[in-house]
Design a protein around this nucleic acid. Structure first.
Lengths: 165, 165
DNA sequence: CTACAATGCTTGATACATGAAGTATGGCGG
DNA sequence: CCGCCATACTTCATGTATCAAGCATTGTAG
Protein backbone atom coordinates (compact mmCIF):
# COMPACT_ATOMS: atom_id res chain seq x y z
CA UNK A 1 0.00 0.00 0.00
CA UNK A 2 2.55 2.51 1.13
CA UNK A 3 4.99 1.66 -1.59
CA UNK A 4 5.59 -1.27 -3.82
CA UNK A 5 8.40 -2.93 -1.94
CA UNK A 6 10.60 -5.19 -4.01
CA UNK A 7 8.98 -5.53 -7.36
CA UNK A 8 9.34 -9.05 -8.62
CA UNK A 9 10.51 -7.98 -12.02
CA UNK A 10 13.24 -9.66 -14.04
CA UNK A 11 16.87 -9.19 -13.05
CA UNK A 12 15.82 -9.49 -9.43
CA UNK A 13 17.36 -11.65 -6.71
CA UNK A 14 20.31 -12.27 -8.93
CA UNK A 15 22.46 -11.51 -5.90
CA UNK A 16 20.48 -13.96 -3.76
CA UNK A 17 20.09 -11.30 -1.12
CA UNK A 18 17.92 -11.96 1.93
CA UNK A 19 14.39 -12.31 0.67
CA UNK A 20 12.04 -9.74 2.12
CA UNK A 21 8.66 -9.29 0.53
CA UNK A 22 7.63 -6.11 2.32
CA UNK A 23 10.36 -3.98 3.78
CA UNK A 24 8.01 -1.86 5.86
CA UNK A 25 6.42 -4.91 7.44
CA UNK A 26 9.81 -6.50 8.02
CA UNK A 27 10.98 -3.47 9.95
CA UNK A 28 7.78 -3.49 11.90
CA UNK A 29 8.40 -7.10 12.85
CA UNK A 30 11.94 -6.21 13.91
CA UNK A 31 10.59 -3.48 16.16
CA UNK A 32 8.17 -5.98 17.63
CA UNK A 33 10.94 -8.45 18.29
CA UNK A 34 13.08 -5.82 20.00
CA UNK A 35 10.21 -4.73 22.20
CA UNK A 36 9.36 -8.32 23.00
CA UNK A 37 12.92 -8.94 24.07
CA UNK A 38 13.06 -5.90 26.30
CA UNK A 39 9.69 -6.58 27.89
CA UNK A 40 10.64 -10.18 28.55
CA UNK A 41 13.93 -9.17 30.13
CA UNK A 42 12.21 -6.58 32.28
CA UNK A 43 9.68 -9.05 33.65
CA UNK A 44 12.34 -11.73 34.06
CA UNK A 45 14.46 -9.30 36.03
CA UNK A 46 11.60 -8.38 38.34
CA UNK A 47 10.69 -12.00 38.94
CA UNK A 48 14.30 -12.97 39.51
CA UNK A 49 14.77 -10.28 42.09
CA UNK A 50 11.66 -11.27 44.00
CA UNK A 51 12.49 -14.95 43.92
CA UNK A 52 15.90 -14.15 45.29
CA UNK A 53 14.88 -11.79 48.08
CA UNK A 54 11.76 -13.71 49.07
CA UNK A 55 12.80 -17.33 48.56
CA UNK A 56 16.53 -17.21 48.01
CA UNK A 57 16.20 -19.09 44.75
CA UNK A 58 16.70 -18.46 41.05
CA UNK A 59 14.51 -18.23 37.99
CA UNK A 60 15.73 -21.42 36.30
CA UNK A 61 15.22 -23.39 39.49
CA UNK A 62 11.73 -22.00 39.81
CA UNK A 63 10.94 -22.77 36.20
CA UNK A 64 12.00 -26.38 36.50
CA UNK A 65 10.28 -26.90 39.82
CA UNK A 66 7.16 -25.28 38.44
CA UNK A 67 7.16 -27.66 35.50
CA UNK A 68 7.56 -30.63 37.82
CA UNK A 69 4.79 -29.26 40.01
CA UNK A 70 2.51 -29.20 37.00
CA UNK A 71 3.46 -32.79 36.12
CA UNK A 72 3.23 -34.79 39.35
CA UNK A 73 3.69 -38.03 37.44
CA UNK A 74 7.19 -36.91 36.60
CA UNK A 75 9.00 -35.79 33.47
CA UNK A 76 11.95 -37.12 31.53
CA UNK A 77 14.96 -34.84 31.24
CA UNK A 78 14.31 -34.42 27.54
CA UNK A 79 10.68 -33.54 28.17
CA UNK A 80 11.78 -30.89 30.63
CA UNK A 81 14.19 -29.26 28.25
CA UNK A 82 11.61 -29.23 25.48
CA UNK A 83 8.92 -27.87 27.76
CA UNK A 84 11.13 -25.07 28.98
CA UNK A 85 12.73 -24.42 25.60
CA UNK A 86 16.26 -24.75 26.90
CA UNK A 87 19.14 -27.02 26.01
CA UNK A 88 19.55 -30.56 27.25
CA UNK A 89 22.75 -29.99 29.14
CA UNK A 90 21.22 -27.03 30.87
CA UNK A 91 18.50 -29.06 32.54
CA UNK A 92 21.05 -31.52 33.88
CA UNK A 93 22.73 -28.88 36.01
CA UNK A 94 19.58 -27.28 37.36
CA UNK A 95 18.02 -30.64 38.22
CA UNK A 96 21.27 -31.68 39.87
CA UNK A 97 21.02 -28.76 42.27
CA UNK A 98 17.33 -29.29 42.91
CA UNK A 99 18.02 -32.93 43.76
CA UNK A 100 20.92 -31.85 45.98
CA UNK A 101 18.53 -29.63 47.92
CA UNK A 102 15.89 -32.31 48.11
CA UNK A 103 13.24 -30.58 46.03
CA UNK A 104 13.30 -33.15 43.23
CA UNK A 105 14.36 -36.74 42.69
CA UNK A 106 15.47 -38.86 39.79
CA UNK A 107 13.73 -42.18 39.30
CA UNK A 108 14.17 -44.92 36.73
CA UNK A 109 11.99 -45.30 33.67
CA UNK A 110 10.80 -48.84 33.11
CA UNK A 111 11.59 -50.10 29.67
CA UNK A 112 14.28 -47.52 29.04
CA UNK A 113 17.37 -47.53 31.18
CA UNK A 114 18.80 -44.49 29.45
CA UNK A 115 16.12 -42.13 30.68
CA UNK A 116 15.32 -40.69 34.10
CA UNK A 117 11.96 -39.76 35.48
CA UNK A 118 12.34 -36.55 37.43
CA UNK A 119 9.70 -35.92 40.05
CA UNK A 120 9.02 -33.24 42.59
CA UNK A 121 9.40 -34.34 46.21
CA UNK A 122 7.02 -33.55 49.05
CA UNK A 123 9.44 -30.92 50.23
CA UNK A 124 9.46 -29.43 46.75
CA UNK A 125 5.70 -29.52 46.50
CA UNK A 126 5.29 -27.74 49.81
CA UNK A 127 7.61 -25.00 48.64
CA UNK A 128 5.98 -24.71 45.25
CA UNK A 129 2.48 -24.52 46.68
CA UNK A 130 3.53 -21.36 48.40
CA UNK A 131 5.71 -19.92 45.64
CA UNK A 132 3.19 -20.55 42.88
CA UNK A 133 0.54 -18.40 44.52
CA UNK A 134 2.93 -15.55 44.98
CA UNK A 135 4.39 -15.94 41.52
CA UNK A 136 0.90 -15.69 40.09
CA UNK A 137 0.34 -12.45 41.94
CA UNK A 138 3.68 -11.07 40.76
CA UNK A 139 2.96 -11.78 37.13
CA UNK A 140 -0.52 -10.35 37.54
CA UNK A 141 1.02 -7.18 38.91
CA UNK A 142 3.78 -6.94 36.31
CA UNK A 143 1.28 -7.36 33.48
CA UNK A 144 -1.40 -5.28 35.16
CA UNK A 145 -1.49 -2.79 32.31
CA UNK A 146 -2.45 -5.47 29.81
CA UNK A 147 -6.21 -5.76 29.41
CA UNK A 148 -7.99 -9.07 29.20
CA UNK A 149 -8.55 -8.61 25.48
CA UNK A 150 -4.89 -7.82 24.89
CA UNK A 151 -3.87 -10.79 26.97
CA UNK A 152 -5.86 -13.12 24.76
CA UNK A 153 -4.49 -11.47 21.67
CA UNK A 154 -0.95 -11.72 22.91
CA UNK A 155 -1.31 -15.41 23.73
CA UNK A 156 -2.60 -16.01 20.23
CA UNK A 157 0.28 -14.10 18.69
CA UNK A 158 2.87 -15.94 20.75
CA UNK A 159 1.36 -19.25 19.70
CA UNK A 160 1.54 -18.13 16.07
CA UNK A 161 5.24 -17.53 16.50
CA UNK A 162 5.85 -20.81 18.28
CA UNK A 163 3.85 -23.02 16.01
CA UNK A 164 5.62 -21.77 12.94
CA UNK A 165 8.53 -23.77 14.34
CA UNK B 1 -18.17 -9.50 34.17
CA UNK B 2 -17.65 -13.27 34.19
CA UNK B 3 -17.90 -13.51 37.95
CA UNK B 4 -17.41 -11.21 40.87
CA UNK B 5 -13.89 -12.19 41.77
CA UNK B 6 -12.82 -11.32 45.28
CA UNK B 7 -15.48 -9.10 46.70
CA UNK B 8 -13.94 -6.33 48.71
CA UNK B 9 -16.17 -6.93 51.69
CA UNK B 10 -15.12 -6.77 55.32
CA UNK B 11 -12.98 -9.55 56.76
CA UNK B 12 -10.95 -9.62 53.57
CA UNK B 13 -7.18 -9.54 53.21
CA UNK B 14 -6.81 -10.25 56.89
CA UNK B 15 -4.15 -12.80 55.97
CA UNK B 16 -2.33 -10.31 53.77
CA UNK B 17 -2.29 -12.87 51.00
CA UNK B 18 -1.07 -11.88 47.58
CA UNK B 19 -3.56 -9.35 46.30
CA UNK B 20 -5.30 -10.48 43.17
CA UNK B 21 -8.38 -8.64 42.06
CA UNK B 22 -9.53 -11.06 39.38
CA UNK B 23 -8.27 -14.60 39.56
CA UNK B 24 -9.36 -15.51 36.05
CA UNK B 25 -7.54 -12.54 34.57
CA UNK B 26 -4.49 -13.24 36.69
CA UNK B 27 -4.28 -16.77 35.34
CA UNK B 28 -4.75 -15.46 31.84
CA UNK B 29 -1.84 -13.10 32.38
CA UNK B 30 0.26 -15.98 33.67
CA UNK B 31 -0.49 -17.96 30.53
CA UNK B 32 0.49 -14.96 28.46
CA UNK B 33 3.76 -14.63 30.33
CA UNK B 34 4.59 -18.30 29.84
CA UNK B 35 3.85 -18.12 26.14
CA UNK B 36 5.85 -14.93 25.83
CA UNK B 37 8.80 -16.61 27.46
CA UNK B 38 8.66 -19.66 25.22
CA UNK B 39 8.22 -17.64 22.04
CA UNK B 40 11.12 -15.39 22.99
CA UNK B 41 13.37 -18.35 23.70
CA UNK B 42 12.40 -20.00 20.45
CA UNK B 43 13.26 -16.94 18.38
CA UNK B 44 16.42 -16.31 20.38
CA UNK B 45 17.50 -19.86 19.76
CA UNK B 46 16.95 -19.59 16.03
CA UNK B 47 18.81 -16.28 15.81
CA UNK B 48 21.66 -17.58 17.94
CA UNK B 49 22.10 -20.61 15.75
CA UNK B 50 22.18 -18.55 12.56
CA UNK B 51 24.58 -16.00 14.00
CA UNK B 52 26.87 -18.79 15.02
CA UNK B 53 26.85 -20.80 11.81
CA UNK B 54 26.82 -17.77 9.50
CA UNK B 55 29.02 -15.28 11.33
CA UNK B 56 30.62 -17.28 14.11
CA UNK B 57 29.36 -14.84 16.71
CA UNK B 58 26.91 -14.78 19.59
CA UNK B 59 23.63 -13.08 20.35
CA UNK B 60 24.93 -10.77 23.11
CA UNK B 61 27.76 -9.63 20.88
CA UNK B 62 25.34 -8.94 18.09
CA UNK B 63 22.99 -7.06 20.40
CA UNK B 64 25.72 -4.79 21.67
CA UNK B 65 27.20 -4.20 18.25
CA UNK B 66 23.75 -3.50 16.89
CA UNK B 67 23.13 -0.91 19.58
CA UNK B 68 26.45 0.74 18.79
CA UNK B 69 25.63 0.63 15.10
CA UNK B 70 22.43 2.51 15.81
CA UNK B 71 24.31 5.11 17.85
CA UNK B 72 27.35 6.12 15.79
CA UNK B 73 28.12 8.95 18.19
CA UNK B 74 28.87 6.34 20.82
CA UNK B 75 27.23 5.15 24.02
CA UNK B 76 28.32 5.09 27.62
CA UNK B 77 28.51 1.70 29.28
CA UNK B 78 25.55 2.55 31.48
CA UNK B 79 23.53 3.63 28.48
CA UNK B 80 24.27 0.34 26.80
CA UNK B 81 23.16 -1.76 29.75
CA UNK B 82 19.98 0.26 30.11
CA UNK B 83 19.26 0.08 26.42
CA UNK B 84 19.72 -3.68 26.33
CA UNK B 85 18.07 -4.30 29.69
CA UNK B 86 21.01 -6.23 31.08
CA UNK B 87 23.23 -5.73 34.09
CA UNK B 88 26.14 -3.38 34.23
CA UNK B 89 28.81 -6.00 34.79
CA UNK B 90 27.48 -7.95 31.86
CA UNK B 91 28.17 -5.23 29.34
CA UNK B 92 31.74 -4.90 30.55
CA UNK B 93 32.60 -8.42 29.47
CA UNK B 94 30.88 -8.34 26.11
CA UNK B 95 32.39 -4.96 25.21
CA UNK B 96 35.79 -6.25 26.33
CA UNK B 97 35.60 -9.02 23.76
CA UNK B 98 34.29 -6.73 21.04
CA UNK B 99 37.19 -4.37 21.67
CA UNK B 100 39.60 -7.30 21.68
CA UNK B 101 38.35 -8.27 18.24
CA UNK B 102 38.49 -4.70 17.00
CA UNK B 103 34.78 -4.21 16.43
CA UNK B 104 34.41 -1.53 19.09
CA UNK B 105 36.58 0.93 20.96
CA UNK B 106 36.47 2.71 24.28
CA UNK B 107 37.00 6.46 24.29
CA UNK B 108 37.07 9.00 27.04
CA UNK B 109 34.16 11.23 27.92
CA UNK B 110 35.10 14.86 28.34
CA UNK B 111 34.01 16.24 31.64
CA UNK B 112 33.62 12.82 33.26
CA UNK B 113 36.64 10.67 33.69
CA UNK B 114 34.61 7.86 35.21
CA UNK B 115 32.70 7.11 32.05
CA UNK B 116 33.70 5.58 28.74
CA UNK B 117 32.27 6.32 25.35
CA UNK B 118 32.00 3.07 23.46
CA UNK B 119 31.92 3.40 19.72
CA UNK B 120 31.73 1.01 16.81
CA UNK B 121 34.86 0.87 14.67
CA UNK B 122 34.97 0.87 10.88
CA UNK B 123 35.61 -2.84 10.99
CA UNK B 124 32.58 -3.25 13.21
CA UNK B 125 30.43 -1.10 10.98
CA UNK B 126 31.38 -3.08 7.91
CA UNK B 127 30.41 -6.28 9.64
CA UNK B 128 27.17 -4.87 11.02
CA UNK B 129 26.10 -3.45 7.69
CA UNK B 130 26.05 -6.98 6.41
CA UNK B 131 24.69 -8.69 9.49
CA UNK B 132 21.90 -6.19 10.05
CA UNK B 133 20.35 -6.87 6.66
CA UNK B 134 20.40 -10.57 7.21
CA UNK B 135 19.18 -10.26 10.77
CA UNK B 136 16.24 -8.24 9.53
CA UNK B 137 15.36 -10.99 7.08
CA UNK B 138 15.66 -13.66 9.77
CA UNK B 139 13.33 -11.86 12.12
CA UNK B 140 10.94 -11.21 9.29
CA UNK B 141 10.92 -14.91 8.56
CA UNK B 142 10.61 -16.03 12.17
CA UNK B 143 7.67 -13.68 12.74
CA UNK B 144 6.18 -14.28 9.32
CA UNK B 145 2.94 -15.60 10.80
CA UNK B 146 2.28 -12.34 12.62
CA UNK B 147 0.14 -9.98 10.57
CA UNK B 148 0.85 -6.28 10.33
CA UNK B 149 -2.10 -5.50 12.60
CA UNK B 150 -0.92 -8.00 15.19
CA UNK B 151 2.58 -6.63 14.97
CA UNK B 152 1.36 -3.18 15.86
CA UNK B 153 -0.79 -4.56 18.64
CA UNK B 154 2.07 -6.57 20.05
CA UNK B 155 4.39 -3.57 20.05
CA UNK B 156 1.79 -1.58 21.93
CA UNK B 157 1.31 -4.36 24.48
CA UNK B 158 5.05 -4.75 25.04
CA UNK B 159 5.34 -1.01 25.60
CA UNK B 160 2.51 -1.19 28.12
CA UNK B 161 4.47 -3.78 30.05
CA UNK B 162 7.71 -1.88 29.87
CA UNK B 163 6.36 1.54 30.75
CA UNK B 164 4.68 0.28 33.88
CA UNK B 165 8.25 -0.04 35.14
C1' DC C 1 21.42 -62.26 15.91
C1' DT C 2 24.52 -58.19 14.75
C1' DA C 3 26.35 -54.14 13.03
C1' DC C 4 25.05 -49.45 13.46
C1' DA C 5 22.57 -45.39 13.47
C1' DA C 6 19.56 -43.09 16.74
C1' DT C 7 18.22 -41.75 21.35
C1' DG C 8 18.76 -39.97 26.36
C1' DC C 9 21.67 -38.06 29.18
C1' DT C 10 26.07 -36.24 31.12
C1' DT C 11 30.45 -33.85 30.83
C1' DG C 12 33.58 -30.12 29.64
C1' DA C 13 34.87 -25.76 27.56
C1' DT C 14 33.39 -21.26 26.83
C1' DA C 15 30.46 -17.30 27.13
C1' DC C 16 27.02 -15.03 29.32
C1' DA C 17 24.44 -12.87 33.29
C1' DT C 18 23.62 -11.40 37.82
C1' DG C 19 24.52 -9.24 42.46
C1' DA C 20 27.75 -7.60 45.62
C1' DA C 21 31.96 -5.49 46.62
C1' DG C 22 35.65 -2.53 45.26
C1' DT C 23 37.83 1.69 42.89
C1' DA C 24 37.79 6.19 41.13
C1' DT C 25 35.57 10.37 40.15
C1' DG C 26 31.81 13.73 40.53
C1' DG C 27 28.84 16.73 42.98
C1' DC C 28 26.83 18.76 46.89
C1' DG C 29 26.02 20.95 51.51
C1' DG C 30 28.18 23.42 54.96
C1' DC D 1 37.33 23.51 50.20
C1' DC D 2 36.04 19.43 52.75
C1' DG D 3 33.45 15.51 54.15
C1' DC D 4 30.42 12.32 52.10
C1' DC D 5 27.06 10.29 49.32
C1' DA D 6 26.09 9.29 44.56
C1' DT D 7 27.60 7.76 40.08
C1' DA D 8 30.27 4.95 36.44
C1' DC D 9 32.75 1.04 35.92
C1' DT D 10 35.17 -3.13 36.94
C1' DT D 11 36.03 -7.34 39.37
C1' DC D 12 34.70 -11.55 41.54
C1' DA D 13 31.97 -15.55 42.79
C1' DT D 14 28.28 -18.22 41.35
C1' DG D 15 24.78 -20.00 38.49
C1' DT D 16 23.10 -20.58 34.28
C1' DA D 17 23.22 -21.63 29.04
C1' DT D 18 25.00 -23.38 24.78
C1' DC D 19 27.40 -26.66 21.81
C1' DA D 20 30.20 -30.55 21.00
C1' DA D 21 31.90 -34.82 22.51
C1' DG D 22 31.27 -38.97 24.96
C1' DC D 23 28.84 -43.00 27.06
C1' DA D 24 25.29 -46.29 27.53
C1' DT D 25 21.12 -48.20 25.75
C1' DT D 26 17.59 -48.91 22.05
C1' DG D 27 15.80 -49.77 17.75
C1' DT D 28 16.37 -51.57 13.32
C1' DA D 29 17.96 -53.36 8.89
C1' DG D 30 19.94 -57.30 6.86
Amino acid sequence: MKYGGNVEGPMMDAKAKPMIADDHLARQRLRMWLQMLKATRLVEGALRERLRSRYDTTLPRFDVLSALHAHPEGMKMSELSQYLVVSNGNVTGVVDRLVLDGFAERGAVEADRRAFLVRITDKGRTLMDEMAAEHLAWVDELLADVSEADTARAISIMLDIRHRK
